[in-house]
Amino acid sequence: MILPIVAYGDAVLRKKCEEIGPDYPELDRLIADMFETMYQASGVGLAAPQIGQSIRLFVIDASPYGDDEDSLKDFKKIFINAEILERGGKDWSTGEGCLSIPDIREDVSRPEDITIRYMDEEFGEHTETYSGMAARIIQHEYDHVEGKLFTDYLSPLKKRMLQNRLNAISKGEIRAEYRMRFPKPSRKRR
């Protein structure tokens, strides 16, 4: 089932997410729905907060980058309860976007290498090291389960320049190519 993607401004995108266990209800269905939602929105990663679930789960399919990096041709993974253990290498900057922040792409600097510990969908534990685009995509999705967005890495000046566009997204004043859920407007007291 294709789920609506939570838009910038929703509080769930700013929460540090909770770990889950093997008994999490209908986890297989949730993972399948997340992949379907991500593909429908032409994304390469999707974190649970982006569909309104404050749990430490994200999915990645980096195969669209397979022409640029051979290691990404079949790079499809599920990360549960992930923890980045180490970041290293040189920082490199490239354009990032986010399904929760449509039509905004900005250069973000991130370390080129990471080591991450996570559980797969069978709750088998893995500790792996990634470099390049795989490391970048993982860090972007990992940030979501930590309550961070790529816009947090922008300079204060760049954030001010984008503020009107970000406000428009949070108000639903945008047109996305996929279903979105916008924050409810706060009630003003009289």
Rank of each mutant, 00 (worst) to 15 (best):
T129K: 11
Y178Q: 05
L13H: 04
T127M: 10
C98R: 02
E19W: 00
V12H: 08
D23M: 03
A134K: 09
Y24L: 07
K73M: 05
E173V: 00
G172W: 03
E146S: 12
D10I: 06
Y130N: 09
E69C: 02
F123V: 08
I20H: 08
K77N: 11
P183S: 13
A47C: 08
E141D: 07
Y39F: 14
Y178N: 05
T115C: 07
S54E: 14
I2A: 13
E177L: 14
K16R: 14
D113P: 00
Q53E: 15
L149T: 00
K148C: 02
K184P: 00
E19Y: 02
P22R: 12
G132H: 02
Y130S: 06
L27M: 11
R56I: 03
M161G: 15
M1P: 12
I116Y: 05
T129P: 02
G124E: 15
N164R: 14
L162F: 09
P102Q: 04
A48I: 11
S71D: 15
C17K: 04
G9I: 04
E128I: 06
S100H: 08
S131C: 03
L149Q: 07
T94W: 03
E125D: 07
G89K: 05
I78E: 14
Y65K: 01
M133K: 00
R179L: 13
K171C: 07
Q53W: 05
V59E: 09
L166D: 07
L57T: 12
E112N: 14
D70N: 15
S186Y: 12
I20D: 09
E128N: 12
